[in-house]
Write a protein that binds this DNA or RNA. Structure first.
Length: 478
RNA sequence: GGCGCUAUCGUCUAGGGGUCCAGGACAGGUGGUUCUCAGCCAUCAGACCGGGGUUCGAAUCCCCGUAGCGCUACCA
């Protein structure tokens, strides 16, 4: 039988959740759910300077907002915790000691400035800027001497001269020639582990079966493979997903792109979590048919790692917006009211929930994001209406006055109108006034909405029936 | 510099030797929806990085270039 599937998402809390991270988390989540596996959330906070509790909260918040629940994590525990690397320091120390005793690692006493200098020299001489290994062959006496000198002491891995072959689930067989990696640090002088070491120790301690992560870690995998061997632990399967790119095709970051990299920014801008996730999933994954939008349920059906692309993808904010609008346009009034609660204008509170929901359904096709709500709703809520210049001019026109005056006088009997009835009524008004086409409809639209465009006719008819637009019409016709 | 990964319309991508004078989506153009914006519908335009092979036949396989990116940290 195949071993239990356990995957993890391992963000470092050094900022907010990146859209690339969100996609990685989503792929992991999908994979876990598909295989009835466990989705672990692990916080990689070994870089004390850059990590913060606030960032961790932010990342967790964003993940929750996206609806990517994890089964084990810092906030909910689990059998193989703790799930914060800063709380697992003993474990790293223990594993490092093991390696030290076995001769697979050695203490290193080189100082930062010395390393920097030698690295620069190596580069200048056209050699790989790897550690030169000078502390590797130190005798015990020499080590003690350096300790007496008070030099910083770190633990360095003695990289074996062996090729590493990775069978990546998305990229296929990848070979890393020996000599590509130098002896790298396992434990810093501060006692804190470095990424590659902590990652391997944790992934094996947490019994991770599949590591699904971004491609930037592909080369790191060579180091990690060595570590698994040295630690005598089985290596998990790996799947490296291509990066999300700026328009200039560099790795997506704050600099270099106009689109935001932070999930929280999209949230604040009125994007729906399901829209963001749908967009992100199809950035790199293709279902194999012509579907262009896949819900979480559909993805659960069709997602597979072998249909994840190998080349990077440029993040296209326009398409995300389209995706968001696509979801918005299909939402029920009730769902819109819930999702858009934070964006609703104050005046929406005075309308009553049922009515508000109908209004929301009426204007939903006007929405690109939830942030468009106030503007879309404005004409239907009490208060001043600001007419756009074009609208103003039309309202002031003679034909507008005539149409509106006539319609306004007929508001009473409009009670049960539906769309078709409304249309024919407007037409009959037009006929009576000798107006048609643009001359007729433009004034009507503007009268009803205060803008040069408005909601769908059906709801307008309903609203007219409720006299909701009476004031507006009156305002215009008087 | 070294190593690795990648390379189809502006963007996301389909394509895994012939069914491809390359399909879909976003963005763009045009038209329709009794006017306009949005929406919706229709429609147009738009690509196989270059060069060599292999093959009767290559976007698809191989090699070499080139380009981009990633890693090469006591960042992750």
């Amino acid at each position: 039988m195949t071993a239990a599937v356990r995957v993890r998402f391992a963000p470092s809390p050094t900022g907010w959740l990146h859209v690339g991270g969100a996609r990685t988390a989503y792929f992991n989540w999908l994979f876990a759910r598909q295989h009835s596996g466990v989705f672990v959330l692990r916080i990689e906070d070994t870089d004390l300077d850059r990590s913060s509790a606030e960032s961790e909260r932010g990342v967790l918040d964003d993940l929750r907002w996206l609806g990517l629940e994890w089964d084990e994590g810092p906030d909910r525990g689990g059998a193989l915790g703790p799930y914060r690397q800063s709380e697992r320091l003993d474990l790293y120390r223990r594993r490092a000691t093991e390696l030290l005793q076995r001769g697979a690692a050695y203490p290193c006493f080189c100082r930062d400035d010395e390393l920097e200098e030698r690295r620069a020299a190596a580069l200048a001489a056209g050699r790989p800027p790897h550690y030169d290994g000078r502390c590797r062959k130190l005798t015990d006496a020499e080590r003690d001497e350096r300790r007496r000198e008070g030099r910083p002491e770190s633990v360095r891995f003695a990289a074996p001269p062996r090729d590493q072959v990775l069978n990546d689930l998305v990229r296929g067989e990848v070979t890393f020639p020996s000599g590509m990696v130098g002896d790298f640090i396992l434990l810093r002088a501060s006692g804190l582990p470095t990424y590659n070491f902590a990652c391997v120790v944790d992934d094996s301690a947490m019994k991770i079966s599949h590591v699904i992560r971004a491609e930037e870690h592909l080369s790191n995998t060579a180091r990690q493979l060595m570590l698994y061997q040295a630690l005598e632990e089985p290596a998990p399967e790996f799947a490296h997903v291509a990066l999300i790119l700026n328009p200039d095709r560099t790795k997506m970051s704050k600099r270099g792109g106009e689109a935001s990299v932070a999930v929280g920014d999209w949230r604040k801008a009125g994007y729906l979590p399901e829209a963001l996730l749908s967009y992100l999933a199809l950035l790199g994954f293709h279902p194999g048919d012509d579907r262009e939008v896949l819900s979480r349920e559909e993805l659960l059906q069709s997602f597979t790692l072998d249909r994840v692309g190998r080349s990077g993808s440029v993040f296209d904010a326009a398409k995300l917006r389209w995706m968001n609008a696509h979801y918005l346009h299909a939402m029920s009034g009730a769902d819109l009211r819930r999702a858009g609660a934070a964006f609703l204008p104050e005046a929406a509170g005075s309308v009553g929930p049922d009515h508000l929901e109908r209004l929301l359904e009426a204007v939903r096709t006007d929405l690109g994001t939830l942030a468009d709500l106030p503007h879309a709703l404005e004409p239907f809520l009490a208060g001043d209406v600001r007419f756009e210049p074009d609208a103003r001019a039309l309202i002031d026109s003679e034909s507008a006055r005539r149409v509106c005056a006539t319609l306004s006088s007929e508001i009473g009997p409009l009670d049960d109108w539906r769309a078709e009835v409304f249309k024919s009524a407007v037409q009959s008004v037009g006929k009576r006034l000798g107006l048609k086409g643009r001359d007729l409809y433009q004034p009507v639209r503007i009268a009803l909405t205060g803008r040069t465009h408005g909601p769908e006719l059906p709801i307008v008819a309903e609203l007219l029936g409720k006299n909701l637009c009476a004031t507006r019409l009156h305002l215009v016709s008087s």
